[in-house]
Nucleic acid binder design. Structure first.
Lengths: 308, 308
DNA sequence: GAGTATTCTTAAGCAGAACTGACCGATGGG
DNA sequence: CCCATCGGTCAGTTCTGCTTAAGAATACTC
């Protein structure tokens, strides 16, 4: 019978590309991975790895094994989920990947509720950008990811991930509170000459924001660039920049910035994804349900955000 | 992750009824089976076995695990079978890079044959210029490249690539169908004053065409420049330009253009290259063999091209 | 072109996992 | 009541699988 532990190594090798990468990911020494894969090769009696330069590539036979391994791992995960849901008390560990503004706005409430209602569930949280978070969830580094999606930027679709919309989040033009002699831009067109802060190139947010400016007829003067939306807030509130920011960043704290709703009412979509095989795990179901409630809590306090 | 070896013991226990029976069936001592199942119980944290009289019975949770174990074992068995049959039938993915006129003339037939004769082989095709395609094949972005070579322009030699000529392709002077009062050029010299369409500067095709004109004693008036040979055809057929075009561009569709064979009988060479190391991969061998047949098919229909 | 950094492989040694065998308590048939 | 059968436990042994270290091949860098 094929050894599933070794097959898993082969699968990780396909994902990560190098033995060293597999070893790193699974906390082994590269030597251990090498030996185990040689062993697997000997067992099946077929060449699985071929050295190519200083790395190795999978032979077509290895690809076949990997494709079946996927299903084995899925089944095992489903087995664990079924076992867990047959019990009455909900327990286990849920590893969550979450992007910054959700981490700040949603997770504190969600963690509090989890702690009081599901004390046996341990929630681990890591901050990650949506794209890598989705990939890593697929690769079993996380159990649940909270990701965002800007209008016109569909997130990569992993067929094995079960996706559910958590909420939507209006994006507004944020401008400095006092005008220091300048007039408040009442629309995105009015901010054509302002200094902008945006996220780094290559992010969906940046691309969307630039497009919004171009649709308004100008090329934004992006003077500040940072992935940290908290910095965006500060730059706006201190009168140094304007920005297009989703409402979630203001949650839990008021702002002196002036917020202008855009005519198209753009919305950022926030969703959760879990591996399909683990979607029935009670602990994961619980986290999702609690997140829904955290969203309601936050929406209730959203009166703090003036309509602009 | 659940240990499949232990799950298997649990499954055997369901079938055989007693630990001793399992041990007997799998050539273990009963003690080993007992210890392994206790271990499994500890890992999942759920009671799996309950003593009943002098035997043990599976708890409902154990039954859940067993039912999933069935599927795991089935999948593993299928994996072994797929692996075994992959040794006799040809499978795998072949990534092909191909330049435009071959993509249009050769690949449709080749893909059809592949699909019917080697359904287990997945062929991926990307259109690329020969030079970058060769480099990318060498760099493992592609498995097979279909490239061209003009007379006097040896393609870059990558020692690691295994190159094989696929066919040669006569290059002819193509002139507009009706002469609108002008006389048909009967030779390249006769087109000295015509408007030319050629590929962009820097391509082998352009360089060769310019040289051909200069050998004929004139500098061509290159009024149109595009890498798309389909556009060349249109410009010629619509009476706006003359061009030097290989026969392959006309394949599969007739033309109203007049084709003049040049005295030197220039030929473009079309070849395939694969990495030396992968040149014996059955799927790649199959693609090459099928390409050869596609060439024959196309040559059979080449009567459509008038000798000029 | 030499030096450096990666990556994989192999060898040697060691810790822990897994198995065997002996023993014990419990059970149920005769 | 007796004893064969079964499962659980403990001690001891075997062997798998890990780490470290050394080495070779390859690719990058100055």
């Amino acid at each position: 019978m094929l050894d599933v532990r070794r097959l898993r190594l082969l699968r990780e090798l396909q994902i990560r590309g190098t033995l060293a990468g597999v070893a790193e990911a699974l906390s082994f020494s590269p030597s251990a991975v090498s030996q185990q894969l040689s062993q697997l090769e000997k067992e099946v009696g077929v060449e699985l790895l071929r050295t190519s330069g200083r790395r190795v590539v999978l032979t077509p036979q290895a690809e076949i094994l990997v494709s079946h391994t996927e299903e084995v791992l899925r089944t095992l995960e489903r087995a664990e989920a079924a076992l867990a849901s047959s019990l009455t008390t909900i327990t286990g560990t849920v590893r969550v990947a979450v992007f910054q503004s959700a981490a700040l706005a949603l997770m504190p409430d969600a963690l509090s509720i989890m702690d009081s209602e599901y004390p046996e569930v341990r929630v681990e949280m890591v901050q990650r950008e949506p794209e890598s978070a989705l990939r890593e969830t697929w690769a079993r580094d996380f159990d649940l990811v909270i990701a965002e999606q800007y209008p016109g930027h569909a997130a990569p679709r992993h067929p094995e991930l079960d996706r559910r919309t958590l909420t939507t989040d209006a994006i507004r033009l944020a401008t400095p509170p006092s005008d220091r002699g300048r007039s408040h831009p009442a629309s995105i067109e009015g901010a054509a000459d302002a200094a902008w802060v945006m996220e780094p190139r290559g992010t969906a947010s940046r691309h969307w924001a630039e497009q919004a400016c171009r649709r308004a007829g100008f090329e934004p003067d992006v003077r500040f660039e940072t992935a940290d939306l908290q910095s965006h807030m500060r730059l706006v509130e201190s009168g140094n920049a304007v920005a297009l920011l989703p409402d979630l960043v203001w949650i839990g704290r008021g702002t002196t910035a002036r917020l202008v709703l855009l005519p198209e009412h753009p919305q950022r979509t926030i969703f959760t994804s879990v591996r399909e095989a683990s979607s029935t795990r009670p602990a994961i179901v619980a986290v999702r349900e609690v997140l829904d409630r955290a969203v309601l809590l936050v929406a209730g306090s959203a009166g703090a955000v003036p309509p602009g």
